[in-house]
């Protein structure tokens, strides 16, 4: 019997170029709008968001005030633009905290298993049992309402389920034969985590981060609306919403203008994370 072997080689298929889906196009467009507002909005509008002009209160849109003025005669457009910065900061900060806690904890519990897993997972369950709004009220109650406490409150309410998510993903990856293969080759625990587990986790983290950013924008607005978030007169999307609430019957367009950016931002993030999910699907790597 001859040990002759032959292998048929196949050339990789050239990637089929496809038109960008409508969803991705809209998502990128809206996302770009939000990013531009945060980055250069206040500079383009060029108005002081805190300058009060009582004589000009509730003025409609004009060349002077693009989106009109609010109950104190402040320029609404520039308040939304500078509020976007506060909101973006809060969202990024909260998601950053949640991610920074969830990844190490998820790796620890999922990879090590045993009693560490048991103890930490119970603690996580405990936190999951507390409604996030209650956590936020608690944090604000202790530290007082501000940008920092909003970041803290949101971060604290996101980390438990994020940790669970990471943990279950790690458990799924850990049982793969390629983890065994790495161990048999003599890879250290740290190397296994770095080369095998984090590579598998990266798409999930990227995706979850974008989804959470959307939630954070929404929750910042909710906290602001309840008076637990950023406090007026400081501008944020949440506090803008809170300010407009008092005049919702007399001047509903103010609340509408305050709400639209939130809707746009969340919509953009959701569309983009959908597109991202499709792109990161391992089966489509080529």
């Amino acid at each position: 019997m001859t040990a002759k072997t032959m292998v048929v080689t196949t050339a990789p298929k050239a990637a089929v170029r496809r038109r960008m889906p409508l969803r991705t196009a809209i998502g990128s467009g809206l996302g770009l709008l939000v990013v531009l507002t945060v980055a250069i909005g206040p500079w383009v509008i060029g108005k002081d968001p805190y300058a009060i002009d009582i004589a000009n209160r509730f003025a409609g849109p004009s060349a002077e005030h693009w989106l009109g003025t609010d109950e104190l005669g402040r320029d609404v457009a520039s308040r939304i633009a500078s509020g976007a910065r506060a909101t973006a900061l809060i969202a990024l900060g909260a998601v950053g905290i949640a991610t920074a806690v969830a990844i190490p904890l998820g790796l620890l519990t999922g990879f090590l298993g045993g009693w560490v897993d048991l103890v930490v997972t119970r603690v996580v369950d405990l936190f999951l049992a507390i409604p996030s709004l209650l956590v936020a009220i608690g944090v604000v109650g202790v530290f007082g309402a501000s940008v920092t406490t909003t970041v803290l409150a949101l971060g604290l309410s996101y980390w438990p389920f994020y940790t669970r998510l990471i943990r279950s993903a790690v458990v799924g990856i850990r049982s793969r034969a390629y983890i065994d293969a790495a161990r048999v080759l003599g890879a250290s625990r740290w190397r296994v985590i770095r080369t095998e587990i984090l590579t598998g986790l990266a798409p999930l983290v990227l995706l979850q981060t974008t989804v959470l950013l959307g939630f954070a924008v929404l929750d910042e607005a909710a906290l602001g609306f309840l008076g637990l978030g950023v406090q007026p007169p400081q501008a944020s999307w949440g506090s803008r919403l809170a300010e407009s609430r008092e005049f919702i019957l007399a001047q509903p367009e103010l609340a509408l203008v305050a709400g639209v950016p939130i809707v746009v931002a969340v919509f953009a993030v959701n569309l983009l994370s959908d597109a991202l999910r499709d792109r990161l699907d391992a089966r489509r790597i080529s």
Binding site: R176, Y178, T195, T199, A282, I285
Partner: peptide
């Protein structure tokens, strides 16, 4: 199928 990390 499981013996190789699909992302490497």
């Amino acid at each position: 199928q499981n013996a190789f990390n699909p992302r490497r």
